[in-house]
């Protein structure tokens, strides 16, 4: 009976306050969409880190004709130097760090280059002797890149030691920024949502002050008096969270599954399944936000 009563109170409260309830739904919808987007960026960063750090290779570029490094002062790499480098890479000393070593000749480098820039006119002007030979070294632990760098960068015949991580980390930095921006927007929107929920509850409490006054006098408990208001806010916020979840899921479905995966096949993207993991978190967050802000408002505006 009391439950039915509380439910009917919520219904009448929402009907009376429809425009405010709608704006609470929309504001929580938008703020939680940004919260979720920030979460998705972080998930994507972790995914890519895991994927790429396993595959990161250190590349030792060997000297060519026009290298400017001091280790290349003697001109292009010689056969002895090349053998010395390979021997050092495969020595006992580096065995704990080095997983595999592959050699790429100038011809192979040109092949890769042509694949990569197939549609570009520069392909025709590049010849094999302009591209460096290289050793591709995959590491046991990608974090131990410095060891190889220190040992080989001044080795005669080695032009440069390069690590794709620099490049990847730049990407991760941008993605981190994007997620920070999303979080800041989310924070501002969440603040708006809290204020709006508080205002809505206040108006609702004001428009129902007659009822609550009578409830108090006839001895209704605090829960019966306050629950309809709290639930009104919570229901609106949860609806907003559901909309946000649906939007994020649809966006990931169309943008990631529908476009990014085809366009960048070699990159690991989060799946729309993983987006579903965010849904309970968003709903919980919405409910807690609304619950807290209405509790605080009620303490001031609805006497019990």
């Amino acid at each position: 009976m009391r439950l039915a009563f509380i439910l009917s109170e919520i219904g009448s409260g929402i009907r009376r306050n429809l425009s405010m309830v709608t704006s609470v739904i929309l504001v929580t919808f938008i703020s939680l969409t940004f919260v979720g987007a920030a979460g998705l960026f972080q998930l994507q960063i972790n995914q890519m880190k895991g994927y790429w750090y396993d595959r990161v290779q250190v590349t030792l570029y060997l000297c060519v004709d026009n290298s400017s490094e001091t280790s290349c002062a003697a001109g292009p790499v010689t056969d002895e130097q090349r053998e010395a480098i390979q021997a050092k890479l495969e020595s006992e000393q580096f065995a704990p760090y080095v997983d595999t070593v592959t050699y790429e000749s100038q011809e192979e480098a040109l092949g890769h280059f042509r694949d990569q820039f197939a549609n570009s006119p520069i392909v025709d002007s590049v010849t094999a002797d302009q591209l460096p030979e290289s050793y591709r070294v995959s590491l046991v632990d990608a974090e131990k890149y410095e060891v190889i760098d220190e040992a080989f960068s001044s080795e005669p015949g080695v032009d440069a030691v390069s690590d794709q991580r620099d490049f990847l980390e730049a990407i991760f930095r941008y993605m981190n920024w994007a997620s920070v921006v999303a979080l800041v927007i989310a924070g501002i929107m969440t603040f708006c949502a809290i204020l709006l929920i508080a205002t809505t509850i206040r108006l609702s409490a004001f428009s129902r002050r007659r009822e609550t006054g009578i409830m108090r006098l006839v001895g209704a408990s605090k829960a019966v008096i306050q629950l309809p208001f709290i639930l009104e806010g919570v229901i609106a916020a949860v609806l907003g969270a559901v909309l946000a979840s649906a939007t994020l899921w649809a966006a990931s479905k169309f943008v990631i599954d529908g476009w990014l995966v085809d366009t960048f096949p070699q990159t690991a993207f989060i799946s729309s399944q993983q987006v579903l993991l965010l849904v309970p978190a968003l709903i919980l967050l919405g409910a807690v936000l609304a619950g807290l802000s209405s509790l605080l408002t009620l303490r001031r505006y609805v006497k019990v």
């Binding site: 009976m1 009391r2 009563f5 009578i214 006839v218 408990s221 019966v224």
Partner: peptide, 19 residues
């Protein structure tokens, strides 16, 4: 309560205490 009938106004006092 202006939008409730006579019966509902009296019943209200019982509803809110869970009768």
């Amino acid at each position: 309560l202006p939008n409730k009938t006579v019966f509902a106004n009296v019943a209200f006092a019982m509803q809110v205490i869970g009768r």
